[in-house]
Structures are given as structure tokens and as C-alpha cells.
Amino acid sequence: MPRHKVGPVERATDNAIREARKNGILGVIDGGAVAALRAVSRKIDVQDEYFKALADDAAEHNGRPPSMDNVSLPTYLKFCESLGLSPAGRKQFNAANKPDKPAVRTKPATAVVSKDAPADELAKRRGWRTA
């Protein structure tokens, strides 16, 4: 049980991690990334109170108020995506775990031409018009 007050982002993160482990999306090998995600979720939950306290202190001492954090939320979302905990991340996870399909050729094969071949021969093989 955490020793701190659990906020809404951390609670939702823990629920998502629990479900992802149950569904086989996350395993023991993902422990470090999961711990980092949890740390960022705690930071997001407490940052409003933290910045308010800093702003109050700055006002009391005629100081400059602190700049807001514009990195934690994008970092959190990137972690979620890389762990398969966001819609985009699940889409990548599902695509990577689909059964193999036969390869489909998307482009016609081209003939291999030596660099020493005459220019007209090369143009002819590539289907270019020559003068």
C-alpha cells in the first residue's frame, strides 16, 4: 500500500497496469518502464499543489512565480503508448501479435542492371523512352 495520498492519475495508471498484466500486454520484463510510469503519474497528481505552494511562497517573498511543468503529461502519454496502455499503443501491440500472413508484394520486381551497362540499355530495361 502506498504511504502517500493516491491521486486520480496514479489510481487510473495502477488499474491500467493491472489489466494489462492480466491480458498479457505487460510482463515482469516491463518492470522498469512500469515503475517510471508510476513515478510520472505521482508527479502529475501532486504538481498542482506543488506549484501553488511555490507561487504562494514567491508572492510572499516578492519572487518570481515558478514556470509550470510542460513535460510530465507528454512523457506520461509516451510511456503509456510504449507500454500498450493507450489506444495507439494497443493498436501497435495487436498488430505486432497478429498471426503471420503471407507476404504481399506491393511493388513489381525490377531487373538488376549493372552500372557498366550502356545508358540506352538501362533506359530500355526501366521502360523509359529513348530519343
Rank of each mutant, 00 (worst) to 15 (best):
R3W: 08
A12Y: 04
K78F: 05
D69A: 03
D48G: 12
V9A: 03
A12C: 03
A58F: 03
I25S: 01
Y76L: 04
A35P: 03
D30V: 05
A119H: 07
N97H: 15
T110Q: 12
D57S: 08
F51V: 14
P8I: 07
E81M: 04
A131S: 11
L73M: 11
Y50A: 13
S86K: 08
L77E: 15
D57T: 06
A36W: 02
A131D: 09
A95G: 09
R90G: 01
D120N: 13
R105Y: 05
D30G: 03
A55C: 00
A119M: 10
L54F: 02
E121W: 03
D45L: 02
M68C: 02
C80N: 08
R21T: 01
Y50E: 13
P99K: 06
R129G: 10
S82Q: 15
E121S: 08
R64M: 14
V34I: 15
C80Q: 13
N62P: 00
S72F: 01
L73A: 05
A88E: 14
D48H: 10
V40W: 00
N94T: 06
F79P: 00
K107Q: 12
K78C: 04
H4Q: 10
V9T: 11
G27P: 00
K107H: 11
D56Y: 01
K101G: 04
T13H: 00
L26K: 03
K43M: 09
T75I: 04
T75V: 10
A131C: 02
G127S: 08
E19K: 12
R42W: 13
D56N: 09
M68Q: 14
A59E: 12
D69S: 04
T75E: 14
K43L: 12
R125S: 07
V9R: 09
K107L: 07
K43Q: 13
N15D: 15
Y76Q: 00
S41I: 02
E81R: 11
R21S: 03
Y76V: 03
A36Q: 08
L85G: 01
P66T: 07
A88F: 04
P2N: 07
L54I: 05
G31N: 11
V40T: 14
I44Q: 01
A55F: 00
L37V: 05
A35D: 12
D100I: 14
A58G: 02
D120Y: 07
R38M: 11
R125M: 13
E49M: 01
P118V: 06
V46H: 06
E60H: 10
N70M: 11
E10Q: 13
K98I: 09
R18I: 05
E121R: 08
P8K: 11
L122K: 14
K101F: 04
A33Y: 10
D56S: 06
V112F: 13
K5F: 12
E49D: 12
E10W: 01
P74E: 06
R42M: 08
T106Y: 07
K115W: 08
G84V: 04
H4W: 13
M68R: 15
P87H: 03
N94R: 12
A88I: 01
S114V: 01
A12S: 11
F51S: 06
R126N: 13
S67K: 14
R11P: 00
T130I: 15
G89Y: 05
V71T: 10
N23S: 13
W128P: 00
V9W: 08
L73G: 00
T130V: 15
N23G: 01
K124H: 12
K124T: 14
A59H: 09
S72Y: 02
R126T: 03
